[in-house]
Amino acid sequence: MPSEPLRLAVVEVTRHRPHAPRYDAYVQTMVARALGDAARGGWVAERLAARDLGADALLRETSRADAVVVLGGEDVSPHLYGAQGGYPGEGPHDVVADEAQIALVRRSLETLTPVLGICRGHQIVSVALGGTLVQHLHDESGLHRTGGVPADLSMTDHSVAIEPTSRLAGVLGKTAVVRSSHHQAIGRPGDGLVVVARAADGAVEAVEHERAPITGVQWHPEDPGADRAQLPALLARLRHEALANRTSVRAA
């Protein structure tokens, strides 16, 4: 056991969305699930909002974190991955939150601090490392989300195929049924990232860094309707990586 509790930074876009109360209430349930599962897994978890803090304060507040979870939210600002706005289904952007979370991912890579990116967080991981996004999935089959309904009703369940030799397969197996709601996806993965899961239509569903303990999943294991075992399993893997990183730092 570690000599002191492992600290987990759970980073969202913003704490409140008064302009979108229904969506905000739904996000609160997912953040609460992430925090609750983290506490049950032995973490001391702190909730932090990237927009509300900005890059400098977010880096300062997470400087002692043993691992980071970057949660979902709004579309990533297109200019950060070399694209333009005006695409179908374009949602709101928050460049302050984008830049703060990107700075956090880049520092985590330098320090080998474990990271789990979820949905938007998975996309932020790739953009932080120079990747691009597919700006809009033409998803007539409803594989990735249910269209034309409020966010809390848009989740859809589908299977993903996981690369058998990946770290993720060691956690979830070679296939998994996941719960998602998204209209964007990783296009070209960022530097050092390897695609380790895809949906039936070929969309990127998960990535891992080739040398750092960084993982991104496009789905929402923290959703109330998701498989109850998935998020605890992912957090347990993150804990294993955090313990290994703490041991190596002390050894050095």
Rank of each mutant, 00 (worst) to 15 (best):
Ile102Tyr: 14
Ser141Arg: 12
Ala50Tyr: 03
His182Gln: 08
Gly187His: 08
His158Gln: 00
His182Tyr: 01
Ala206Asn: 01
Val13Cys: 10
Ile118Tyr: 08
Glu110Ala: 14
Gln123Ser: 12
Arg40His: 02
Ser3Met: 03
Ser166Tyr: 13
Gln84Cys: 06
Met1Trp: 03
Gly72Leu: 04
Asp157Ala: 15
His220Met: 08
His93Gly: 09
Ala206Gly: 01
Tyr81Arg: 06
Arg47His: 12
Gln184Asp: 04
Asp201His: 15
Leu235Asn: 12
Leu112Gln: 07
Asp191Tyr: 04
Ala97Gln: 07
Pro150Trp: 00
Ala65Ser: 11
Ala34Lys: 03
Val27Thr: 09
Val249Ala: 11
Pro78Gln: 05
Gln135His: 13
Thr113Gly: 08
Met155Pro: 13
Asp37Thr: 09
Ser3Ile: 06
Ala169His: 08
Ala50Gly: 06
Leu243Asp: 06
Arg17Gln: 03
Ala176Ile: 01
Gly85Ala: 11
Arg33Pro: 01
Arg33Gly: 02
Leu153Phe: 06
His183Val: 04
Ala151Met: 12
Leu143Phe: 05
Glu74Val: 13
Ala252His: 07
Val95Phe: 02
Gly73Lys: 10
Leu112Ser: 14
Asp152Glu: 12
Met1Glu: 06
Thr247Lys: 09
Thr146Asp: 01
Ala242Ser: 14
Ala97Val: 08
Ser159Asn: 05
Ala199Asp: 00
Val68Asp: 07
Asp94His: 11
Gln135Lys: 15
Glu140Lys: 07
Arg60Thr: 09
Val207His: 03
Val105Asn: 08
Pro5Ser: 00
Asp201Thr: 12
Arg15Asn: 02
Ala67Pro: 15
Gly41Gln: 05
Ala252Trp: 10
Val134Arg: 10
Thr62Asn: 09
His138Arg: 15
Thr156Ala: 10
Trp43Ala: 02
Asp94Met: 10
Ser108Arg: 13
Ala25Asp: 05
Gly42Leu: 03
Glu61Val: 13
Ala45Glu: 12
Gly86Cys: 05
Pro164Tyr: 10
Gly41Met: 05
Val134Phe: 02
Val10His: 09
Ala200Asn: 04
Arg106Trp: 02
Val10Arg: 13
Glu74Gln: 14
Glu4Ser: 15
Ala169Ser: 11
